[in-house]
Every structure is written in structure tokens, then in C-alpha cells.
Write a protein that binds this DNA or RNA. Structure first.
Length: 268
DNA sequence: ATGGTTGCTTGGCAA
């Protein structure tokens, strides 16, 4: 027996319902975490997800921007949302579910993208991103979130390793891959400490991407991707980690998100 | 070096 959990920045859940349902049908995650749903809770396509067998929903949305949600085949309890940086943004939701003998809590995050200029004095959005990561690290450490039976997923908007981007040299000053962001993300990681599920399965010396910009019409041949989406697990879950599936093919689906779904399976 | 595209909305951000 194993269970599957996936994360996907969907860039408007209402617009993407055809491909969400396609993914659920073809890959059957037990739990799907979405980011950038971009709609109010009342506008969330709950009935379509329920009809597809994902009856248990945890939604934290807002009009037009951000928004996170968890759709699950198995019951969700202890649904909780946390606000960061007193911005009122919908960027986190958590829930607990039973997987075999374990009760696992998943934290679903959408970290601020941070704007275009990697300087907090010139660009408040970059400062917000750094502050958000600081609050994440403090909370994870204080609440001991990663001690046991915990998973952190989401669009963290940072590609930390050299081979998480198509060219380390070309992107080292580009927001998402700058040393200060990588350092802040590392503090969030160490606050667990977490285990990087993707890099446990695919070594750090291999290129690995989950996002390809819309601004490249030939995204597939150019392949200038970045690994912005992450799945971290508490150390006790590492022996249970089975498979990893990064569905690059979904970037080529009709009216795609610029991110692709990432799924791990864990034996229970 | 710059601009490239998409979504939410319909002018201009945000990503």
C-alpha cells in the first residue's frame, strides 16, 4: 500500500479545470495541492473536484491573485491557514490526513515571486519575499513542524541548486536564483530539518525543472527551465519515499500552466 | 541587453 501526493501551481484553477481533471484521472494522486488558484473560495470549482472523487477540500483563496487549495480523496482534518507578513495574502493552507498507520500533515505554500529586481531597497516585493521566508523559518522551528509525519510542498519560487536552473551563470542575478534567496530558503529547509524529496530521487548533478516560462514559445527545445516547485518531507518519512513523477508532458497540454505537476508516493 | 506570454480584467499589474 502506498499513497500519492502532488503539488501543482495551476495559474488559475477555473481556467485549468480540464487539465486538472485530466491529471487526476491519469495519475490519481490521493492528495493534490494547488497554488495560484486566483479565485475566491465561493468561485472555486468544488463540485467538479467532488464529482471526480476529490470530496475533501481545503481552500484558501482570494480574488484575482495567489490562492492555495488541497483536494483530497481521503478526509482532511485540522484545516488551517496562516498569514505571513500581515499582507492578507492567501499563500498557505495545511491539513492532516490518514495514510495507513500515519497521520500526516501537509503544508501547502505559495511563496511570493519577488518582482524583477533583486534588491529590497529598490523593490519592496523582493523584500516581502525575503521576509516571508524568514517568517516561514521561524515558524517551522518554533512549532517543530518537521519533527514527524510532515510534508511541505508548493511553489517556493526559488531554484536553489546550480542544476535547478538551465544556466547558473546566466541566472545568478535573476530573482529566483540569487544567493540571498537561496540562503533564505536554506534556512527554511534547515529549520525542519527537512528532506528534499525531489533531490533524493534525482541527484543534484542532474538538471531538474518544474517550470518553463510562457515567454519562450519554444519552451521544449530551448528547455530554459527552473525548479521552483518543491516537496520536502520530515526525516522520518524518508524511508517511506517510493517514486517521484515530474510530469513535464503537462507543459505541452492544451492551455497549460507554466508549472507542471510534481508527485511523490510514500509507502504507509 | 531586452523582450518575450499569460491571467485577471478592460488598463495595467503580476508572474
Amino acid at each position: 500500500m502506498s499513497f500519492k501526493i502532488a503539488t501543482w501551481n495551476i495559474n488559475s484553477v477555473r481556467l485549468r479545470m480540464p487539465i486538472v481533471l485530466r491529471y487526476l484521472k491519469s495519475h490519481g494522486p490521493d492528495v493534490l495541492c494547488l497554488q495560484e488558484t486566483k479565485c475566491r473560495d465561493s468561485e472555486f470549482p468544488s463540485s467538479d473536484l467532488r464529482a471526480a472523487g476529490y470530496e475533501h477540500l481545503a481552500i484558501n483563496g482570494q480574488k484575482g491573485y495567489h490562492g492555495v487549495a488541497i483536494a483530497s480523496r481521503i478526509p482532511l482534518t485540522k484545516i488551517d491557514k496562516r498569514e505571513f507578513c500581515q499582507m492578507g495574502d492567501a499563500r498557505h493552507i495545511s491539513a492532516t490526513f490518514s495514510a495507513g498507520k500515519r497521520d500526516i500533515t501537509v503544508h501547502n505554500f505559495y511563496v511570493p515571486a519577488g518582482g524583477d529586481i533583486a534588491d529590497r531597497d529598490l523593490n519592496p516585493k523582493f523584500g516581502h519575499k525575503l521576509d516571508f521566508l524568514g517568517e516561514m523559518a521561524d515558524w517551522i522551528a518554533q512549532a517543530k513542524l518537521a519533527e514527524t509525519n510532515a510534508i511541505l510542498v508548493g511553489d517556493l519560487n526559488i531554484a536553489p541548486l546550480e542544476h535547478d536552473v538551465w544556466s547558473h551563470k546566466a541566472l545568478v542575478k535573476v530573482v529566483s536564483h540569487t544567493p540571498i534567496e537561496v540562503e533564505r530558503l536554506q534556512k527554511v529547509f534547515d529549520a525542519g530539518p527537512w528532506v528534499d524529496a525531489l533531490r533524493t530521487k534525482i541527484p543534484a548533478d542532474q538538471k531538474l525543472y518544474t517550470w518553463w516560462s510562457y515567454r519562450s514559445p519554444n519552451w521544449e527545445t530551448a528547455n530554459k527551465g527552473r525548479r521552483l516547485d518543491h516537496m520536502w518531507i520530515s526525516p522520518d518519512l524518508k524511508p517511506a519515499l517510493q517514486d517521484l513523477d515530474i510530469l513535464k508532458e503537462a507543459r505541452g497540454w492544451d492551455r497549460p500552466s507554466d508549472h507542471v505537476p510534481v508527485m511523490i508516493s510514500l509507502k504507509d
